[in-house]
Amino acid sequence: MVVQIAANWKLLQYTDIPCNNLAQRLKKARMLTGMSQVELAKKVGISRSVINEVEAGYRDKILRPTLLKLLTVLDKDILCDDYYRFVLDQEEKLKPLVEKYGLRKLARMIGIDASSLDHWKRGDYQISRRYFEDLKELKLL
């Protein structure tokens, strides 16, 4: 009973942590698991310094492979905002846009080179937040 009360208290305590940016979302998701930065790093196979830099706000971006590792133990609904949800499925989400508008036209619409868009569509590179926001602004997502 005491353990359950302590667990519930921890949950209530961490629900007040804001989720306005990646640093806050990662810290909240990690704290809800009860893991330290060191424990999380070991469990998912990334360095503690990466976790620390993100939580401290020194890094405002993580790459998809790191995100996938973190999501093996952290809550997707807390860790991922719209951008990171898109990144997880960017190939599937870009494919219909490229089919509808064509590679070159869509690239012109968002102001990038067609080869960059092709790399994003194939999953070779991760779309940047800036271009994700441009797609949203153009109401393409």
Rank of each mutant, 00 (worst) to 15 (best):
V3D: 14
A6L: 15
N8E: 15
K10M: 12
L11G: 10
L12R: 15
Y14I: 07
D16H: 15
I17V: 15
P18V: 14
C19R: 14
C19Y: 10
R25K: 15
L26S: 08
L26A: 08
A29R: 12
R30T: 01
M31L: 15
G34E: 12
I46C: 13
S47C: 09
S47Y: 04
V50W: 08
V50Q: 08
V54D: 00
E55V: 00
E55T: 04
A56C: 07
G57T: 02
K61H: 12
L63N: 09
T66L: 06
T66Q: 08
T66H: 07
K69F: 06
K69Q: 09
L70M: 10
L71Q: 06
K76D: 09
L79W: 04
C80E: 04
V87M: 05
L88N: 06
D89S: 14
E91I: 06
K93I: 00
K93T: 01
L97F: 02
L97H: 05
G102I: 06
R104C: 07
K105M: 07
L106N: 00
A107M: 00
R108F: 02
G111Q: 06
D113Y: 08
S115A: 07
S116L: 08
S116A: 08
D124S: 09
Y125I: 04
I127V: 10
S128D: 14
R130T: 09
F132Q: 03
F132L: 01
E133C: 07
D134A: 08
K136T: 07
E137N: 09
K139Q: 15
L141V: 04
